[in-house]
């Protein structure tokens, strides 16, 4: 939530995150290469590079896709989400090495431009088993590139969060393209059921965690339908101090926070990347987003100066120990008197 954009703000946590990531990558590459050389001494250097980077980046993509639902299932995974863009950019770079080496080896030094060759060297677009699988890898790499290039908050702001989010949802398209790239490519030759099994396992994990997180989400958000202006939500004690209860009323996604003997309600959707503010916490008098730490004042939905983000606010009242909320939103950043308990 910076108004000026530093390239990346480094701190010890981020450094530890990156260090752990790099060490894990080195462990994988070293093990993969060592076992290759021992069990398959005839492998060429090119094939070793192509296969090790391909599999590493594919594995990294699985981790990237699983972190989202994991951190909704267990909040302790949130730090992994917080710095996920580092993982994403690094994954792109690894996949890029694979793509460049493949393009160079299979398409360079011929009569046709390598890029053109990717699309024309195999004309069997109407076939399944003979489909030109490298084109699928190419489009996946293009998506990964766009995501890596726009990962900084500068782009988030300039593309508008909505477009940015849509662009970054393409990661699921990239995943599907890579699955097909593998199925129609190397698995047409490498037919061991173990390899197919590993890929299916990865797919089941991704789908399974997303479904699991979705079910939990549905349970967490109480849905009310409103006839009157103020709707009874719950007893005051049901909301933990400095935390929120999330409700959906008339399609409004509302986070109701309790703090310092007061209750305030603001929109649950963070302006940064649509993070769930109601799963965050009050820190230093500000509602703090669990995803990347954007902050909002509970009484007016504004980020503290010098920041400029604003969310909608709602009228609240407390009567007979019950919390009531009016689901008709005030314009973003409107000050609303907190209800006192």
């Amino acid at each position: 939530m910076s108004v000026k954009y530093a390239s990346i703000l480094w701190n010890r946590q981020k450094k530890r995150y990156d260090l752990a990531m790099l060490i894990l990558m080195v462990i994988y590459l070293a093990t993969f290469s060592a076992i290759q050389v021992v069990f398959h001494p005839n492998i060429t250097v090119d094939s070793l590079i192509i296969r090790s980077t391909a599999t590493l980046s594919f594995i990294m993509l699985h981790i990237i896709l699983i972190i989202g639902p994991l951190s909704r299932i267990d909040e302790r995974f949130l730090p992994l989400l917080y710095n996920r863009r580092h993982l994403g950019v690094t994954m792109f770079l690894v996949a890029f090495v694979h793509g460049i080496f493949s393009m160079n080896l299979f398409h360079n030094f011929g009569a046709v431009n390598p890029l053109l060759s990717v699309f024309t060297s195999n004309p069997n677009y109407a076939s399944v088993s003979q489909y030109p699988f490298q084109t699928l890898g190419f489009f996946a790499l293009l998506i990964l590139f766009l995501m890596a290039a726009t990962s900084h908050d500068f782009w988030l702001k300039n593309l508008s969060p909505k477009i940015w989010k849509t662009l970054h949802m393409l990661v699921y398209v990239a995943y599907a393209l890579i699955v097909m790239h593998v199925v129609l490519g190397v698995l047409q030759q490498e037919t061991s059921p173990v390899l197919v099994g590993l890929m299916v396992l990865g797919m089941l994990m991704i789908i399974g965690f997303h479904l699991w997180a979705g079910v939990l989400e549905g349970r967490r958000e109480a849905v009310f339908s409103a006839k009157e202006s103020f709707i009874k939500i719950c007893r005051v004690e049901e909301i933990d101090e400095n935390c929120a209860k999330v409700v959906i009323v008339q399609e409004e996604n509302i986070a109701i926070f309790k703090y310092e003997g007061k209750v305030s309600a603001i929109n649950n959707v963070c302006k940064h990347q649509n993070g769930p503010l109601g799963e965050g916490k009050m820190v230093d008098g500000c509602i703090t987003c669990p995803w990347h730490g954007y902050q909002y004042l509970p009484e007016n939905g504004c980020s503290p100066a010098p920041f400029t983000e604003k969310v909608t606010t709602y009228d609240v009242k407390v009567e007979d120990g019950y919390v009531f909320v009016n689901p008709n939103p005030h314009p973003e950043g409107t000050a609303v008197e907190p209800a006192t308990i």
């Binding site: 994988y28 093990t31 993969f32 076992i35 290759q36 069990f39 398959h40 296969r51 599999t55 594995i59 490498e190 061991s192 173990v194 390899l195 590993l198």
Partner: peptide, 9 residues
């Protein structure tokens, strides 16, 4: 993963 990817090719 590293071991099985290598051994089953």
């Amino acid at each position: 993963f590293a071991v099985s990817l290598v051994l089953y090719q």
